[in-house]
Design a protein around this nucleic acid. Structure first.
Lengths: 112, 112
DNA sequence: CCGTATCCATGCCGATACTG
DNA sequence: CAGTATCGGCATGGATACGG
C-alpha cells in the first residue's frame, strides 16, 4: 500500500499536532479529562501564558479541544478533548512508541 | 493506556519527520526505492537544492536513509531508505490517513 | 551533477508588562 | 484567573550565485 507522494496528507496531520507544546497539551487533557487553564499552566511549567493560549486556540479551531467559560468573576475556563479529538490518541501513541524505539536505536548505533 | 505526559516521546518522533519536505522525500523513496539526487529534485519541483540537501543529510544522520556516491565525474549520488527507516512507513500511513479524515471533517463542520 | 556559501524575509517563540 | 499587547532574538527556509 503506497501513498502517492503528491497526494500526501501527512503534512496536514503534522500541522495540527506539531509545535513544541501541542502534543504535551493533548496528552495532559487526554490523561486528566477536563482541565482549567491554570491547571495546564502548572502542569507544563516552561510554557508561557502566551504560548499556552495560542496553542489552545489553534487546537480549538481544529475541533480537537473544547473551551468552556464559566460566566463568573474571577474567570474560570475549562478545556477538554472533543469526541473527534479523541481520534488523535492512537496516532499520538504510535508516534510516542516510535520515538521511544528511535531513542534506543540511536544509543545502539551511535551515529552522529 | 496512557502516555505519561512528562515522559512523552512524541516530540522526538516529530523532530525526525517534521519539516515541509521530509514526509514527501520519504514517500518518494519508499515508492521508488533508490533515487538519484536529480530524480528527487525533479519529483519535488518546489524544493530548492539547499533544502533538499539539508533534509537528506538530516535523514541520513538519523539512519532513516542511505547515501551512496559513485566515484565518477560527473557525480552520481543515490539515496534509499534504510531497513530501519522502513519502520517509519506505518507511522506515515497512519498520519496520512488521519490527515485525509481531518480534511473531510473540516469540510463537514465548517469551523474556522 | 551535486552540492556549498551567502544574503535576507518571515515567523515562531520567549520575556515582560498590563487588564477585566 | 485568564487572558492581551508589545518587543525582540533566533532559527527556518527561500533566492541566488558559485564550485569540484
Amino acid at each position: 500500500m503506497n501513498i502517492e507522494p503528491n497526494l500526501c496528507r501527512v503534512e496536514d496531520a503534522l500541522e495540527i499536532i506539531v509545535g513544541k507544546w501541542k502534543p504535551i497539551i493533548l496528552l495532559h487533557l487526554l490523561k486528566n479529562g477536563t482541565m482549567r487553564f491554570s491547571d495546564l499552566k502548572r502542569s507544563i511549567p516552561n510554557i508561557t501564558q502566551k504560548m499556552l493560549t495560542k496553542n489552545l486556540r489553534e487546537l480549538e479551531n481544529e475541533d480537537i479541544i473544547e473551551r468552556f467559560v464559566y460566566p463568573q468573576v474571577p474567570p474560570k475556563v475549562e478545556y477538554s478533548i472533543t469526541e473527534y479529538g479523541k481520534e488523535l490518541e492512537p496516532l499520538l501513541h504510535a508516534m510516542h512508541k516510535w520515538g521511544v524505539k528511535h531513542a534506543l536505536h540511536k544509543q545502539q548505533y551511535k551515529f552522529i
